[in-house]
Amino acid sequence: MGMITDSSTVSSGSAPQLAHPPTPVPRISDPLKAQVESFNFFYANGFQALHGINMPIADNQVTALIGPSGCGKSTLLRSFNRMHDLYSKNRYEGRIILLPENINLIGPELDPIEIRMRVSMVFQKPNPFPKSIYENVAFGLRVRGETNKRYIDERVEKALRGAALWDEVKDNLDKSGFALSGGQQQRLCIARALATDPEILLFDEPTAALDPISTAKIEDLVVELKKTVTIIIVTHNMQQAARIADYTAFMYLGQLVEFDQTNQIFTNPSNPMTEQYLTGRFG
């Protein structure tokens, strides 16, 4: 354990110290959907939560962010659709490039609303709106001002099918979203995110609040969804990352320790800290 920096020195010191310097990010051969470049993030109270993150996001692949609590993985994920903008005085530095247009997702000139319409998010706790199942899925279309009923019907069905929920709810579309079970609610939230055809779908520990059977269904869904959308998933569960992710990033104390193809990271990590984490010696 002596190899790991004592957390007390981290909180009192300025920049956190890692016992092992981060492994250089490897170039990946898959086409890219996004690229994180020298990304820093500061919370309103001045705390720097992310330090110089560099990371590629492969198009139509699943990228998993893993690491112990407080390592900054959720903070990084929420930067992709500018959720931090909801709370004033949070500050981004660096760039997150969306390809192929080569636009900077965190650039102040870009409207966060536009980004959120292109980069959707599914949360840890299922958070359906207090509306019917149908209206929950149609929400994204309605806020865009879509009024064509036929079109909305079509998209709702497609999204629900995409989220593997259609068969379970097709006769009860008018029922409240709260009436569903936890796993169904989470799939409803996925359908809601899919209905607007996002380019990237962010998952923030989507199965943390679910039972094993519902978890399995969501995991299958994620693998299925990557055919149509780029996925970034934060997970606490290393097995889950191993099962569903193509690429995995291990983060610690706000830094990216190692990024590689999932089987590479799990079988042959190049950084000793990654190995310690994966073998459960801390976390």
């Binding site: 139509n60 390809l99 192929p100 247009e101 409207d111 609303i113 319409m117 292109r118």
Partner: peptide, 17 residues
């Protein structure tokens, strides 16, 4: 898939505005 046409972006931006 991720080829978002310029038209679509322009449309998106106008309705956001």
């Amino acid at each position: 898939m991720s080829d978002v046409s310029n038209d679509k972006i322009v449309q998106l931006r106008s309705q956001i505005a």
